[in-house]
């Protein structure tokens, strides 16, 4: 469904992508996890036609994104990191113009827009100007807009960045629903819990390269099951254990105590790259 081979992109002397290859299966919910500047947004921008690639190949639903760009664009919807709605237009007008860009018939657009606004819980705000909406509502409008033409692939670039915890969870529930309805979802995030909660597979990206790709469970299991954080002066050290009792026994005498928690994706990323994501 989504296939990338040796994707490379440079901005001047800065290499944003250094040979990214991966494959996402139909219906999969896939997350690209990495710190800011790792190359996540560049990948989505290339796949959605916003940025030119320097080298490599990519296919969306079998369509080459360079030689069959219009066909490739028809297969996907994209929710950009920036809020890029027309603030002077209403919610409905934003969605309708999107439908027109994809050449959808009027009757279909009307029905689909009503369905989607119901889906994202904004049907009663269809006539509101976008500038009158909160940040969370705007994000939901963007997700609805990306779904108007029934794309088989949905790209979400940092879909919950800047949103508070409650809204973030609401967006997560929406993304899960979209995935359950059959769309392939390609998500970028630098929120650990977002990738853990949503993704069926996760790729770690750092300095434009994929450093690991697996299910969240397998990635975390590489470190163990339990992580114990201890403070040594001003330095925080983490040790990993497969057994909580073993961790408690070994660290019982540690001066200053310790915090025992489940291993998360941040631990795996840290082990692979030597740095934290957030």
């Amino acid at each position: 469904m989504i296939r990338l081979e040796g994707l490379r992109k440079s901005y001047g002397k800065v290499e944003a992508l250094r040979g990214v290859s991966l494959q996402v299966s139909p219906g999969e919910l896939f997350a690209f996890l990495g710190p800011n500047g790792a190359g996540k947004t560049t990948t989505i921008r290339i796949l959605t036609g916003l940025t030119r690639l320097d080298q490599g190949w990519a296919w969306l639903d079998g369509h080459d994104i360079v030689s069959q760009s219009l066909a490739a664009k028809r297969t996907c919807g994209v929710v950009h990191q920036h809020l890029n709605l027309d603030s002077e237009l209403t919610v409905e007008e934003n969605l309708d113009l999107h439908g027109r860009l994809y050449d959808l018939p009027r009757s279909f657009r009307r029905r689909r827009i009503a369905e989607l606004l119901e889906y994202v819980g904004l049907l009663e705000r269809r006539g509101s100007l976008v500038r009158q909406l909160s940040g969370g509502m705007k994000r939901r409008v963007m997700i609805a807009r990306a779904l108007v033409h029934q794309p088989r692939i949905l790209f979400l670039d940092e879909p919950t960045v800047g949103l508070d915890a409650a809204i973030r969870r609401r967006i997560w529930a929406l993304i899960r629903r979209i995935s359950a309805d059959g769309a392939t979802v390609f998500l970028t995030t630098h929120y650990i819990e977002e990738a853990e909660f949503l993704a069926q597979r996760v790729a770690f990206i750092d300095h434009g390269q994929i450093v690991a790709l697996d299910t969240p469970q397998n990635l975390m299991a590489r470190q163990g099951v339990w992580a114990a954080d201890t403070l040594h002066g001003e330095e925080l050290r983490t040790r990993y254990f497969t057994n909580a009792e073993a961790a408690k026994r070994e660290l019982a005498g540690h001066e200053g105590g310790f915090t025992l928690r489940r291993v998360n994706l941040e631990d795996s990323f840290l082990a692979l790259t030597g740095k934290k994501i957030q």
Binding site: T48, L50, H80, H98, L101
Partner: peptide, 9 residues
Amino acid sequence: VFEEFQAAP
């Protein structure tokens, strides 16, 4: 908003 046009077919 230009991104919306760039991403459209």
